[in-house]
Design a protein around this nucleic acid. Sequence first.
DNA 1: ATTATTGTATTAAGTTATTAATACAATAAT
DNA 2: ATTATTGTATTAATAACTTAATACAATAAT
Lengths: 123, 123
Amino acid sequence: MTWNLDSSRPIYVQIAEQVQLDIISGSYQPGAKLPSVRELASQAKVNPNTMQKALAELEKSGLVYSQRTSGRFITEDNEMIEQLKERLATTQIQEFLEKMSCMGFGPQDTLQLIEKILKEGQS
Amino acid sequence: MTWNLDSSRPIYVQIAEQVQLDIISGSYQPGAKLPSVRELASQAKVNPNTMQKALAELEKSGLVYSQRTSGRFITEDNEMIEQLKERLATTQIQEFLEKMSCMGFGPQDTLQLIEKILKEGQS
DNA sequence: ATTATTGTATTAAGTTATTAATACAATAAT
DNA sequence: ATTATTGTATTAATAACTTAATACAATAAT
């Protein structure tokens, strides 16, 4: 796990987002055990409380759960993960299209621009 | 001008972004005069300093300029505006594709998803 | 039973950034 | 010359977050 944190937004939010992405993308398998709060905090070089706060966020959504002394685990509910992934992707797309629209690019303009950029990137 | 502000990020950043969008999209024409800091602040219901800070941001990039007592104006440099628009769009697209990639959607997956969502939105 | 490891809770302090209040400065308009 | 309007600067207050220190709670391992 490599932590990519900056000061633009709260650390705990960034951590929560990154772990969430790892779950959605499958880097963390359903049911997998997470390292302890202290261990993760040490890796990310943040205070244990900050890590705790980040993980508590993920628990609110049910994505992870904790067992008092054995540790923390990713949910085994594959369905939930899939739904979240789908929902997040949809939101991302809609926000993106909205922003492009504000800049004066309609959906078709945007699609063409993306394809153009993808072609350029291949070189 | 309708101001759409929330507390997730600094107000002055959001204001700067929105004015920038208005310039890029053509809502503010090149050379146009902006309302005074106090007037804009009143409209947006923020402190004049906040508005001042937002506009100062745009001045750094050369998008607007101020004349001590006559007011603030949009740059007349059409070229600059066009370049910024292009650069911003490219950045938006790259960031978007990057995020989708982290979620496990490759470029082709993403394009298909966008098209699917656009079709649904028409109904 | 004891110990070590886990998550959790509480409180305080420090830091930073944002916002607000106010005063100052320049100049166009009169 | 005076006044009103503009942008600007300075300082203070507020808010949010992070860090830190510490204590508590539950249970698996021994």
